[in-house]
Simulated assay, not measured.
Amino acid sequence: MSVEAKLKDLGLTLPDAPAPAANYVPFVVAGDLVHVSGQISADENGLITGTLGADLDVEAGQAAAKRCALSLLAQVKAACGGDLDKLVRVVKLGAFVNSTADFTQQPQVVNGASDLLVEVLGDKGRHARSAVASPSLPLGVAVEIDGIFQIEV
C-alpha cells in the first residue's frame, strides 16, 4: 500500500509543507538523506500552544507531536517531488517539548510522533530519536520536531 493510501486509510491528511519563517530552508537534501527543519505543532485551527505540566497533559502533547510528524512527512513529500513512496526510512527525530521544570514525560509526549510514523510507514518508520524539555518554544507552541529521512535518489 502506498504511503498516501495508508494515510487516507487512517483518515489522515498531510498539511501543505509549511514555509520557513526566517532565513533558512524547510529541508536540505544531502545525498540520500533529507534533513527537515523543525516543524512546530499546528493543525487546521492554527498553532497548538501551551506548556506540558502546566496547561497541557501528556495526551494533548501527543496530539501536538502527531501534528509535527505530519508536517515532517509533508516536507519529505516536497523533497521527493511529491512522491512520498520514495521515502526509504525515518532515520532520526529530534524533539523539543515545551515543559515545566518538573515535567519529566517528554518521551511519552514524543511517542505521539513516533507511533504515527510507525503506524503509517511500518518498519521504515522506526527511528532513533531524542526527546528533550525546553522552557519555551517559538510562538509558544507545545512541540517542535526536526528529522532526518533516507530517500531513493
Rank of each mutant, 00 (worst) to 15 (best):
V34H: 03
F96R: 15
A74W: 04
F96V: 12
V36E: 00
L93V: 04
G61Q: 06
Q106I: 06
V36S: 01
P107L: 07
G38V: 01
V76R: 00
L52F: 10
E59R: 12
C80K: 04
G53E: 06
S41D: 13
A74G: 07
A63I: 13
A42E: 07
V76I: 13
Q108P: 02
L72Q: 01
V88T: 10
A69R: 01
G81T: 10
L33F: 14
L70K: 02
E44C: 10
Q75R: 08
G53Q: 08
K66L: 11
A69D: 07
N45L: 12
L93A: 09
T51E: 09
D57S: 05
G31M: 11
G61H: 09
A42S: 14
C80E: 01
G81V: 13
A60M: 08
V88F: 02
A65Y: 00
V91A: 05
V28R: 11
E44I: 14
G50L: 12
N45D: 14
I40E: 14
A95F: 01
V90W: 01
S37Y: 14
D102T: 09
K92S: 10
K86P: 09
D55K: 13
S41W: 02
D85R: 01
V88H: 05
Q75L: 03
T49N: 05
V88P: 00
P26M: 05
V109Y: 11
V109S: 03
G81E: 15
F103L: 09
Q62K: 12
E44G: 09
D43K: 03
K92H: 13
G53V: 04
D57Y: 14
D55G: 06
G46R: 12
S71R: 05
V34E: 07
A54C: 06
D43E: 09
V76K: 00
V76D: 00
L87W: 02
Q39I: 10
L93G: 06
V91W: 01
N45P: 01
L73C: 06
L73D: 00
A30K: 14
Q108V: 13
A79N: 03
L52S: 03
F27E: 03
L47D: 10
V91G: 03
G31R: 08
Q106Y: 09
D57Q: 09
D55P: 06
S99G: 15
V91Y: 06
A64P: 00
V34I: 08
D32C: 08
G81Y: 10
G31D: 12
F103Y: 12
V28Q: 12
L87C: 03
L70W: 14
K86T: 04
A30Q: 15
G82F: 08
V28N: 11
A64F: 05
L72I: 00
H35C: 10
V88N: 06
A78R: 01
Q62I: 08
A78V: 02
L56V: 13
F103W: 11
Q105K: 15
